[in-house]
């Protein structure tokens, strides 16, 4: 779409903060994203993911700092900066009274595409996202999956250098999720894609790099490979103890080596099952659990290792100040 130096970052944030009144939604975020990177943005609800995307796309102004897209400053040259971006917000911005083709023509016009290119580009995108069969139907009559495709199509229209997607597969059935992922994957070849999602496996599958936000702060920026290494650092045990939930929780919370604790349920009468996380680099947690239960008069009925997953990494990174997860 435009000529940008290969080595220049497409997205650059320098000390970006965003305040809503007195509440700080983003805290001093600095990062760069290069051409061709597929980046996942993770964080709990209220962590600032949508605010960050809105700031990146120029929908919201920053309170402090600077956003640069394709070398253009968002505050000084918003039109030039926005030209590089295709954005799918969490709720696809559709006009229900338009057909899919009318909608794409409208979006092409507001993106200032040349009149001669509009028809061909809208038709091409319709084909790519699988809207050809329903292109002349009103958007209000389309299923959620097709509506989401229309949202993705408007973001991809004009082949922007950067595609920003906020929860692109939210509310879709498994088949639709696979289709949308495939679309993103195909479009992302050679382009920069930034995806916000709460489905961690999805991020792990699509993205090469992960950004994790916690309370508006960028707490982690790493490659998927590094996440894999982090997985090795986390140990997880499944424990069944012969005591009631409250009593067992009180005992296990006193074990210093435990980094996270989650009640799973009651499999046997008079017992409770727990998932325990610990740092593999630290001391062996198993004797400590055994001793703690024995000293309190409880009995250990089962203890077995469980494989840690990306969800554990996410919880660890987004809630590192909370020692125990319950």
């Amino acid at each position: 779409m435009s000529s940008i130096a290969m080595d220049a970052p497409l997205i650059q944030l320098d000390g970006v903060s965003k305040f809503y009144g007195k509440k700080q939604a983003l805290r001093d975020i600095s990062l760069t994203v290069g051409k061709g990177e597929i980046v996942g943005l993770l964080g709990r609800n209220g962590a600032g993911k949508s605010t960050m995307l809105n700031v990146l796309t120029g929908y919201l102004p920053v309170s402090e700092g600077r956003v640069s897209i394709g070398g253009a400053d968002m505050a000084e040259k918003p039109r030039e900066a926005k030209r590089h971006i295709g954005y799918l917000p969490e709720l696809p911005p559709l006009y229900d009274s338009m057909t899919a083709m009318e909608y794409l023509r409208f979006v092409a016009k507001i993106k200032r595409m040349k009149d001669a290119d509009i028809e061909g580009e809208a038709g091409r995108i319709c084909g790519e996202v699988g809207l050809l069969d329903v292109r002349n139907r009103l958007l209000r009559n389309l299923s959620k999956g097709y509506r989401q495709r229309a949202g993705v199509a408007q973001a991809m229209l004009g082949r922007p250098d950067i595609l920003i997607l906020d929860e692109p597969t939210a509310g879709l059935d498994p088949k639709q999720i696979v289709e949308i992922r495939s679309l993103i994957h195909n479009f992302g070849l050679g382009r920069t894609v930034l995806i916000s999602s709460h489905i961690l496996s999805e991020i792990a599958e699509i993205c090469e790099r992960i950004l994790i936000l916690r309370e508006g702060e960028l707490v982690n920026d790493c490659k998927i490979g590094e996440i894999g290494a982090s997985l090795g650092e986390i140990g997880k045990l499944r424990v069944r103890a012969a005591c009631e939930e409250d009593e067992c929780e009180r005992i296990l919370r006193n074990v210093a080596e435990i980094s996270s604790l989650r009640f799973i349920g009651v499999e046997e009468a008079g017992s409770s099952d727990w998932e325990i996380g610990y740092d593999r680099g630290g001391a062996d947690v198993r004797p400590a659990i055994f001793d703690a239960l024995a000293e309190a008069g409880g009995k250990l009925l089962m203890m077995k290792p469980v494989e840690a997953d990306i969800e554990d990494i996410f919880l660890r990174m987004t809630a590192s100040e909370e020692r125990h997860e319950t």
């Binding site: 809105n54 796309t57 918003p78 911005p93 507001i110």
Partner: peptide, 14 residues
Amino acid sequence: KTKRDQLLLTSGLS
């Protein structure tokens, strides 16, 4: 209300 202003304002329209 429908958040369609996100489309208009991020497309380059003032």
